Computed example of a mutant assay.
Amino acid sequence: MKTLKSLMLGLALLVAGTAANAATKIDGENLTKNFAINTYVDAMTRGKLQGFSDVVDQSAKFSMLRGKTVLSFGKTEIVDQLKANKNTEQDCITSTSVVESNNDLAVVKVDMKYSTFTRSNYVTITNTGNGWKITNVYSVFK
């Protein structure tokens, strides 16, 4: 009887673990505008990278204006930089506002206000057919 209870408990844990893992899998249906922006904000301000690679399109471009120089990066470079700073909480107040939104794309302004400057990120999210993905981010420092 003790073996049967242990076996049933083990089977129940296996089923529960499998169901929980399936629920966290990201597919096109889960890639909404809000999910993409929330995942971006979590990655940039809290170092939480879960799902970030899924919401960024392979051809995404990240640009930032530094003085009179524009620096550009691809998805791989941004993901590598974020991994190097994983779980690092930024000391800033973050706010978002929708600049433009329709059925095909959205531009969302993500302001990260630090004590001495503000980083404004203009994030373009596109309906790729496989869900909403980040295709362009342009950052300006004020």
Rank of each mutant, 00 (worst) to 15 (best):
D27R: 03
L71D: 07
E100R: 11
D111W: 04
T32W: 04
V98S: 02
Y114E: 05
K83D: 04
N30Y: 05
M44V: 13
M1R: 09
T32I: 09
A60K: 07
N85V: 00
S53H: 09
L9H: 01
R66L: 04
V137Q: 11
F52M: 14
D80S: 12
A23L: 09
T45P: 01
S6L: 14
L4S: 05
T45N: 11
V140P: 03
T18V: 10
N103A: 14
V56H: 10
S59N: 13
A84W: 06
T88H: 05
A43W: 11
T116L: 04
T3P: 00
I78Q: 13
M8F: 10
T3K: 15
Q58K: 11
I93A: 09
T45L: 02
K25I: 05
T24D: 08
T45G: 09
S6I: 15
G74T: 04
A84Y: 00
M64S: 08
F141T: 15
N38H: 03
L31Q: 11
L65E: 08
N121F: 02
K133V: 11
T69N: 13
D27T: 14
V137W: 11
D27G: 15
F35I: 03
G67V: 07
E29L: 10
N34K: 09
K83W: 02
T24E: 12
L11A: 13
Q81S: 13
V41T: 07
C92K: 02
M8W: 06
K109V: 01
T88L: 09
E29F: 10
E77C: 05
G28W: 09
F52W: 12
G28E: 14
S120Y: 08
V140Q: 12
N85F: 00
C92M: 08
K142H: 06
I134E: 07
N21Q: 06
R119I: 12
A23C: 07
S139M: 12
M64C: 05
L31I: 11
T32P: 04
L4A: 01
G47L: 03
T124L: 07
N102T: 12
N127D: 13
G51V: 14
G67T: 03
D104L: 05
L13S: 03
S101A: 10
R119L: 15
N21F: 12
T124D: 04
K133A: 00
K48I: 12
Q58E: 14
N136D: 10
L11Y: 01
D57L: 11
I93K: 15
